[in-house]
């Protein structure tokens, strides 16, 4: 979709304050983070540390109060809300907790939906092939309520990859899964990260799965340190 060279995600000096008026929380406090293409970085830390906020800023869902966010060399903090939506659509993949699939759609249609979000999608991966790549070809016609948590998460990952994103952001993908499923899902993430040279940031509480990650960083009170 774009000819820009892949250089990954760079956050520098990112500060995000949340809340209004009297109760302002510094969710991110001068955070620096670089994730290279093909690298899977895990973010761990206690509840309320600012992990989801980090994903929100890196994923152009919100703009930081200070600092810069660049993806493949492009500064996304200066974009309008409409331009950020288009940027998310074309360059960023999200995997949410518990999959967040659309209840009305079959597994295959979850992936095909991505292709309907804009007209110029010639570069997209083939939904059926991608579904097979994540091992869900035999579930193509099932709707979310007919799928297990692990299956939903795999489909959520496939959905995030349809548009060949530069950046993949994953929020607690294993929160609802047992140990074996958790390993499978994170292994899938690691495999896809390598194969598609996407820069992946995964927030997790699950220390078991860290072995599949290239790097672990820890977030405490909005500050980031090497884990």
């Amino acid at each position: 979709m774009t000819t820009t060279e892949r250089t990954g995600l760079v956050l520098s000096g990112v500060t995000l304050r949340l809340g209004d008026g009297d109760s302002v929380v510094t969710a991110l406090d001068h955070v620096d983070l670089t994730v290279a293409p093909g690298e899977l970085v895990a973010v761990v830390g206690p509840s309320g540390a600012g992990k989801s906020s980090l994903l929100a800023v890196a994923g152009a869902l919100t703009i930081p109060d200070e600092g810069t966010v660049t993806i493949d060399g492009q500064d996304i903090a200066t974009m309008s809300s409409r331009a950020r939506a288009a940027y998310r659509r074309d360059h960023i993949g999200f995997v949410f907790q518990s999959g967040n699939l659309l209840p009305a759609l079959t597994a295959l249609d979850q992936l095909r939906l991505v292709g309907t979000l804009s007209r110029r999608r010639a570069d997209d991966r083939d939904p059926a092939q991608l579904l097979a790549d994540v091992g869900m070809a035999h579930r193509a016609d099932r709707r979310p309520h007919q799928l297990s948590g692990g299956e939903r998460q795999r489909i959520g990952i496939a959905r995030a990859l349809v548009g060949r994103p530069s950046l993949l952001l994953v929020d607690e993908p294993t929160a609802a899964l047992d140990r074996a499923r958790s390993h499978e899902v994170v292994q899938l993430l690691a495999k896809e990260t390598k194969q598609t040279a996407v820069a992946t940031v995964m927030v997790t509480h699950d220390h078991d799965v860290l072995e599949h990650c290239d790097r672990v960083v820890e977030m405490i009170d909005g500050r980031l340190s090497a884990g």
């Binding site: 994923g59 869902l61 409409r82 939506a85 288009a86 940027y87 998310r88 659509r89 074309d90 960023i92 999200f94 949410f96 967040n100 659309l102 209840p103 991505v114 979000l117 804009s118 959905r159």
Partner: peptide
């Protein structure tokens, strides 16, 4: 609501 928020996060335009 939640579904629409997911769509928005995925980059769906308001017009969509």
């Amino acid at each position: 609501r939640h579904e629409l928020a997911v769509l928005r996060a995925m980059g769906a335009a308001r017009r969509y």
